[in-house]
Write a protein that binds this DNA or RNA. Structure first.
Length: 511
RNA sequence: GGCCGGUUCGUCUAUCGGUUAGGACAGCCCCCUUUCACGGGGCAAAGACGGGUUCGAUUCCCGUACCGGCUACCA
């Protein structure tokens, strides 16, 4: 009689979603779907000072792009609504009060200035960050140090106050992490965290416990940075009397910056020149846009794939997985403990593999949009499909299709004359003049026909085809790149092929 | 400083006590290609250190070092 699996992703709407966040979603999602469970998104917006407009919308757009649709969320609704903590505000106070009544928490009236003073006063070289804990709480202004009468008066006077957990003096709290195994803490080492803020909002610590309980979350996955506060959460589950319902925890390893150490941040992407956010994010205050994987030209399947491989593998040599395969094969006990440095080169390799793997028909729409953005109208989808088929192997990100194939749809923007000029002579000039005539008369316009005619003509002129193919490429493409020249000629057609050769010839004459 | 976590090629990783420590990305070389890629083949490259346990440790235990996270009325 195991309960239905319910997992949740609980972002705070403070900006774009980065790699680590999306990977946390992914692992949640994979685990839920594998177990036929529900994937819930809960918005943790308890800090009103950090609220950023548009961030929530961005989160849902990102999830949609990645193909991870929540079963319940503020956007999708669900039986446990509301799914925004700010809208659940009224819900938390009673639990905080209950904890106080039961002696597990207390009211604290210290002002910000009081706290600062305490930190300065007790700061020593051995203890650079003094904590509001068992040794100091008696010295502060709270319902433990103050008399019952004073507390009643302060409360009655509406004095701003917070509720803090009263950490036991010397207890051991331990739990079994799905990734790390047994982890334990001495409660003397953890401070009396604030549970309810002066504005009546819960902090993360209270909210996560209350909401996970009320939303019947069975498995709670989050980043490793939460490990130190786990004992607070564990104790809260116990103090609130919900221990039997507590979810299983898993603390995911961090994604690290590629160079040096530390966790990957948006800044690293800016600095090293690669995306860190899933999609473009524009800061509404500075109007600065941070580029995302989507806009950088990654396929969602590739993005999901590369994220999954950062800290997980199925034990085989397989690296390319579809979402369906991931759902089938994912297992929490194969998730790594250690953090992984993000390698953008490998990320591009995943995308390249996915571009090669994705059917042309699915690529057409994406690429058509990219061309439209460059003001290149594509009228012929059939031609576009053939072009994509021809160049996809050499594209690692979507915009590569533009540089690799724009010449199919318009005259080359620039022509690399310098590549041809030094070895150019009258014989070659004559050859191409004849080639135009031959091609114009040609009634076969297939790649192999064009190549045959080209070679016959070069033999007749006593020229080596090798010396002529690069010039032809430059004429048609503009540079030293692209698929086979005759494949190109075949696709751009007789008229354009001849015109480009003619144009080049006259360009040579005038330069 | 304290607490917690982590540690296999440059990077992502395989190895559930016995392997020439495997794969992938990146790098280098060769082949294919009358461009560039793709593809194929090859080279180079790793168990942080010190103790145990064991017939035998990358693997289990302890210590050290190093790295990271946390140490807010932020999440």
């Amino acid at each position: 009689m195991s309960k239905k699996v319910r997992v949740r992703f609980a972002p705070s709407p403070t900006g774009g979603l980065h790699l680590g966040g999306v990977r946390t979603v992914l692992f949640n999602y994979l685990f839920a779907k594998q177990n036929g469970g529900d994937f819930i998104v809960r918005i943790e917006d308890t800090d009103q000072t950090r609220f950023v407009d548009g961030a929530e919308d961005y989160i849902f757009k990102t999830l949609e792009w990645c193909g991870m649709v929540p079963d319940e969320s503020p956007l999708h609704g669900g039986p446990f609504a509301p799914y925004r903590q700010s809208e659940r505000k009224a819900n938390y106070r009673k639990f905080a009060d209950q904890l106080v009544a039961d002696g597990f928490a207390y009211y604290a009236f210290d002002t910000t200035a009081d706290l600062e003073a305490m930190r300065t006063e007790y700061k020593t070289p051995e203890n650079p960050s003094p904590q509001y804990n068992h040794s100091l709480r008696e010295k502060m202004r709270n319902s433990i140090s103050l008399s019952a009468q004073e507390v009643t008066n302060l409360l009655a006077a509406g004095t701003p106050h917070v509720v803090r957990i009263k950490m036991p003096l010397n207890d051991t709290v331990s739990f079994n992490d799905m990734i790390r195994g047994e982890v334990s803490f001495n409660t003397a080492q953890v401070d009396d965290k604030v549970l309810l803020k002066a504005d009546g909002m819960p902090t993360y610590h209270l909210a996560v416990v209350v909401d996970d309980y009320q939303m019947q979350i069975t498995h709670a996955f989050r980043g490793e940075e939460w490990l130190p506060s786990a004992p607070v959460h564990l104790l809260l589950w116990k103090y609130l009397g919900w221990e039997a319902e507590m979810p299983q925890w898993a603390h995911l390893p961090l994604i690290l910056k590629p160079d040096g150490n530390g966790k990957l941040s948006k800044r690293d992407g800016d600095r090293l020149g690669f995306p860190v956010f899933a999609m473009d994010w524009t800061d509404s205050k500075t109007n600065e846009t941070t580029v995302g994987f989507k806009e950088h030209g990654f396929l969602p399947a590739a993005f999901v794939n590369l994220l999954a491989m950062l800290g997980w593998n199925d034990g085989s040599d397989q690296e390319i997985f579809t979402m369906q395969e991931l759902i089938a094969k994912f297992s929490m006990d194969r998730v790594h403990k250690g953090g992984a440095k993000f390698d953008y080169e490998k990320a591009k390799w995943f995308n390249h593999e996915w571009i090669k793997k994705t059917p042309v028909a699915e690529l057409v729409d994406h690429i058509k949009i990219l061309f439209a953005q460059k003001n290149i109208a594509i009228s012929n989808n059939d031609l576009l499909a053939k072009v994509i088929e021809l160049v996809k192997d050499r594209c690692t990100v979507l915009p590569d299709f533009i540089s690799q194939s724009s010449f199919f749809f318009e005259m080359p923007a620039t022509v690399d004359i310098a590549a041809v000029k030094p070895k150019w002579d009258d014989k070659k000039n004559m050859f191409f003049t004849e080639l135009i005539r031959a091609y114009e008369l040609s009634n076969q316009w297939e790649s192999h026909d064009l190549e045959r005619e080209f070679k016959e003509l070069s033999a007749a002129n006593d020229l080596k085809p090798g010396e002529l193919m690069l010039p032809l490429r430059i004429m048609l493409v503009g540079g030293k790149f692209g698929p086979g020249v005759f494949d190109i000629a075949a696709l751009i057609g007789k008229e354009d092929t001849c015109k480009r050769i003619k144009d080049f010839l006259s360009l040579m004459q005038h330069s």
